[in-house]
Structure formats: C-alpha cells, structure tokens
Design a protein around this nucleic acid. Structure first.
Lengths: 349, 349
DNA sequence: TTGAAAGCGCTAACAC
DNA sequence: GTGTTAGCGCTTTCAA
C-alpha cells in the first residue's frame, strides 16, 4: 500500500507553497483563480485526500461525534442511530457509533476510546447502571447530551416517560382493567424504567399492590422461559392481572409470544401495552398497543443540542427538552374478560 | 473546556522525559519499575489520556475500521453491525459505522470521510448501484472486505445465495407449488438479488415464465400500496402463483401484511418464503419460513478477513468464503390450495 | 496574493 | 534505562 500524497506533494506538483494549497483546500479566500485552478488540478491528478488526523491534531478539535448505544439490535435504537448519523452528517460531522451491550465495562472502554479520539462531543442513548459515566464526562467538560432518556445532570431530550406511561395505563383503566401488572426489563435503562413505572402507578391511583414482573435476562423476540415462569406465577396467583404494561416494545412482544404459548389469548384474556412503537409493533399480526416516541425529533434535537454545547462550551446553561409521546391503540388491548361491577368510565371498544 | 494534559505534562510531573512516558504508556520494555510507577502516578493524577490523533498521525496507521451499512434500520444489518463492532473491539479496533441509505452519493461521501480519517480498512455490508466503489477502493489499495454479499473483486464472506435460494424454492416445489413468484426489492443489493433470483429459477428447472415482482420503493414493515397493486396484478392474472419467494425478510413480512389485508390467507391460499431470518421472522405471530444467514460467522469472518488484509497488504491473494445458510421452515408455507394432478414429489407436511 | 516557519501531541530511532 | 531528536501532515500567524 503506497503512501498517499500529502499537501506537500500537491504543492510541488502545482509549483506553489503548501500554505497556498492549504488555503485552496479549506476554501480560505486570498487565492487567485489561476493558482486555485492549478492546485485543484494537481489535487485531482494526484488523488490527494486531506489527512483528517493531521488536520484535527493541529486544529485541536475534530468534527467527529461519538454515539453510545446500549443495544443496536433493538430496532428502536438502531433506527435512532440511523437518524442521528444522518443529522450529524448533514451538519458536517462524522459519527462513531459504539455499542456497549449495556455492560458498564464495555461502556467505559468505548467512551474512553471516543475520548482518546478527541470526539467533539458525545451523544448517549442509554447508559449502564446508575449512569456514573455521565458525571465523569461532565466533570471533564466533555460536551454531552443524553437522548431518549432523561438525565438531570446534562443536556437531554426525551419524552415524558411518566406522563406517557400514565396515559397508556389510563387507556387500560378506561377499558375496565383494574389489576394490571408492570413488566420491567434489564433491557431498559433503570431511571427510564422507574419513570415508566411511576406513571403506571399514578394511573392506578398510586396503588402499590399491583404486581411487578422484573426480567433480568430478557430474551429477544422469542418466548422466554424466565418470562414464562414469571408470567405464570402472576397469572396463577390470587387476583391475577387482566393486563400487562411493559417497559418497552421488545419485552411486550416477548410477552405476546409467551402468553400465546401459555394458551392465554391476547387481548381476549389479557391486554398488553408496550413502549417505543418500533416498526414491528405496527404489523397487523402483532398489533401492539404502545406509546410512540418521536424518533425523528429525538434525533434532530439531540444533535442540535450537542452541536450547541460543542460550540458554546460548558458554561452554557443546561437545555433539557421534553417531547410528547403518542399512544397508539392497536389490537393488543381490549376490555377485560369480565368487567367487575358496572361499567368502566368512558370505555371504548 | 480546558485543554487536556499532554505527554509533556506527564513528563514534567513525573520528572522524566516524554519518551520515557511514551515507553510506559505503550508498554514498551526498557523502563524500571520505579520510574514506571512514578509515571503511572502522574498519569492518574493528571487524568492524562493519550491523543489518538497524534499517535495515529505519527504511526502512519490507525486502529479504526470503517463499516459501511446501507440501512441500519434493517434488523439484519443492525445486528450484523453490532456483532462486527464487538469483534473489532475485541481485536483492539474502533469502528466507525456509516449509513448510506443505499444512495450512491451518501455512500461516496461516507467512504471519503472514512478515508480522510485514514481508517485501517473498510468493511462493506452493502453497496449502491453496480458497486463501482469497490473497484475504486481496491485501485487505491484500501484494505476492503465485503461481508454478507458476494463480491468477486475483493475479499468477501457471504452465504451461497444461489444455493440457499434454490433450496428455499425447492421446499416450495416439494410442497406441490408449481407457480411461484419472485419478489425483488430495491432494498436488496442488486447482485445479491440476482443471485437469489437465479437460485429461484434453478429450483424451477430454469423456467423463465415465473412472475417477478419488482419493488422500487419498498415500504418498511407496513403494508404498501405499490406492493399491494403489484401483488393483486399477479394474483388476478391468468395462472396466479400459489407461492412467493422474497429477496429478503423485510419484503416478505411486508408481503404477509399486504396479502392479509387483501384477504389472501397465508399459508392456506398462498405460501411465503423470506431470506435472512431476522429475529422478527421467528415470532409465532409471524412465523416466516426463511433462509437463515449465519450472522455470527459473517461478522467474525468479516473482521478476520479485514485484519488479515490490513496486515498482509494488497499483495495477499483474495480470500473469499462461502458460508452455508439454513432453511428454517415455519408457518408461512404449506401445500398449495389444490395440488394440480397427482402427488408432489416427497412433499412433507 | 503567496511563502516561511512554528508548532499540534506523539512515536521511534538513536545516543548517552 | 533514559533522554534527545526528528519528524507525521496539516493549519495558521506573520512577513514579504
């Protein structure tokens, strides 16, 4: 692999100094059109390609953004990543996408690598554990924005998880459900999960007696023995729930599988609600009622906030945006099998 | 944002020269444990983080891999990307993931950016158009491997699309289907699509009379008016097909939606087969019969090949690996409504 | 309008 | 063992 031409080669070929070449390439003024043409010609002839490493080194800043994703295999995040990359690219930034697998160790290594590459800023979609990493990054004045989950300490953009969850559960309540289980998953970032669970409780009038199913090792779009055991335990218990609210769509779809495998009809016997509105939730065969997150706006705003922070520095005041989520009612929710006593308020079919 | 400490700061703090610091950091021998400790202490105290830009610049090589994806929103690719990132990371490489949206223009810009960043090599999962980019990259001696689709000109690893498609269609033939339509999509890289179509034709004994549906603007996991029109045209024509073989799962799932919306029962009225085996294909509610690609191996081998090429240079002989795909029979395929004349050879339920 | 020169932070000979 | 030194390819004053 022969070594690529440098700015010096171009300078020699076109018979000018390297600073003139630099001026031409960067589009700085101060160049006569004749020399510009000569330089450009040499560039084309040599196939010269500026070395971003050298440029970034001397400029003391890069135009690279770091994107930290917990799980690229979750369509919600891969779609978001795609949109973010597009926004960043449009703004002239290159994106380094990292997948942490939700493990703190992997996260730390990825972030460290991004920092060594002197990314201009970091956009996080999820973080592991308690998000200690956020504090560390902030303490080092690294431009940081968190998108799709709320984070008090940094710039962020996310839906109002509490309100959205509340609305989703109110939908179930309106249908006549009184006993509703919350299905929590390790796949969902803890603070977000808590927020959704809070909304869930609020809709139930703060009732603390609703069952909560916690999945530590959720399966991926496949029926899961852990989940099955947990579900059966809840369903076979006294006063079983007639509906499940899940902390994200992937879990909800797993639950759909599991329920059906256990011979529990959805929505005839129990209703299921998810969160995210990933594409597959909308399939007629899946028909998952869920909370739709505005991914486009999440991506757009996220990048906007990050660029603002990069240019403005650490002294800029925090900018935190709440976006609105939308309940999408599909086929996975219906009235409970036998509505206990009287009519449910304002229930629709 | 205060500027981060450099190797010089560490040198000063620990009272040694910067080359000694460099030696410590790089783990080069030649350092007494006492000085090493002193240096390490200074590193910790200062929060020193080596500047990868400077390092890569002087080393004349980076440990960054470029990953070019056509569509991160296709679960097949996002899963592959995730696996590849993991393999690369394990080998000490950082990955820059780019999404081209399948457009030549976006692809060119992304690749150019990767090259300016002097990535050690590029791994492509898809390319736009005729793949002219492959030739250009190769001509510049850029280490390149193509994974998940076959490419004669470069190192590559992919399943045998022809054989896999043939096997899938033979499954339909064995069930008794005689008239089978091929559904092609712009989402699938052209050469791959052609290969799958070839396998399709081979299974049909080279029959050239089978209908082909071509989707230029495929929808995404949603029923599509273009698709619906095309399907109805084929189904309402003379001698309508009793089965569809799709060039990937996303299209197959769209087709499932569309067929059902049009009141055509699957698999009772028509059978559907996909390609890829994305996670959602395995959902009980979807139950798509499809060809499973070995994503783990695709990722692992892809990275292996690329590292080999990076170290070995352009003179190394081409290494092209065929992987085996596996037919996964699920609920979307069955015998045709009325088997024309006699029994189908060796058909199973 | 152009050129000369001083680095950016680091590695890798090569001296000591 | 440790220090000295010469760049890597580029941007950016500052002179000419």
């Amino acid at each position: 692999m022969r070594k690529p031409p440098t700015i010096l080669d171009v300078a020699e070929t076109s018979g000018v100094s390297k600073s003139t070449v630099s001026n031409v390439i960067r589009g700085a003024g101060n160049v006569s059109s004749t020399t510009r043409d000569r330089v450009l010609e040499a560039v084309a002839q040599l196939g010269y390609r500026p070395n971003a490493l050298a440029r970034n080194l001397v400029r003391q800043r890069t135009s690279t953004l770091g994107l930290v994703v917990g799980d690229l295999a979750n369509p919600f995040y891969s779609e978001l990543a795609k949109l973010i990359e597009a926004c960043a690219s449009e703004a002239g930034y290159t994106t380094m996408i990292c997948n942490t697998d939700g493990r703190a160790e992997g996260e730390r290594a990825r972030v460290e690598s991004l920092l060594e590459h002197r990314v201009a800023g970091i956009l996080m979609l999820q973080f592991s554990g308690d998000g200690a990493i956020v504090g560390e990054l902030l303490a080092q004045d690294v431009p940081l924005v968190v998108a799709s989950c709320w984070e008090e300490r940094s710039d962020c953009v996310a839906v109002d998880d509490v309100a959205a969850a509340r609305r989703a559960v109110e939908h179930l309540v309106a249908l006549g459900h009184e006993r509703i289980a919350y299905v929590s998953s390790a796949l969902v970032e803890p603070a977000t999960d808590r927020a959704r669970q809070l909304g869930f409780r609020q809709a139930l009038g703060g009732a603390d007696t609703q069952p909560v199913v916690r999945l530590e090792h959720p399966a991926y779009l496949r029926s899961d023995t852990d989940l099955r055991a947990a579900v059966e335990r809840v369903l076979d218990g006294p006063d079983p729930p007639t509906a499940f609210f899940c902390s994200n769509d992937l879990v909800a779809v797993d639950l759909l599988e599991t329920l059906e495998q256990a011979g529990v009809a959805v929505p005839a016997a129990v209703s299921v609600v998810g969160f995210d509105d990933i594409a597959l939730a909308g399939l007629a065969r899946v028909g998952l009622t869920t909370v739709a997150q505005p991914t486009d706006e999440l991506a757009r705003r996220g990048v906007e906030l990050l660029l603002r922070r990069i240019e403005g520095g650490a002294d800029l005041p925090l900018d935190q945006r709440r976006l609105e989520a939308r309940l999408v009612v599909r086929a996975s929710t219906a009235r409970p099998p036998r509505v206990a006593g009287g009519t449910a308020s304002g229930a629709s079919a």
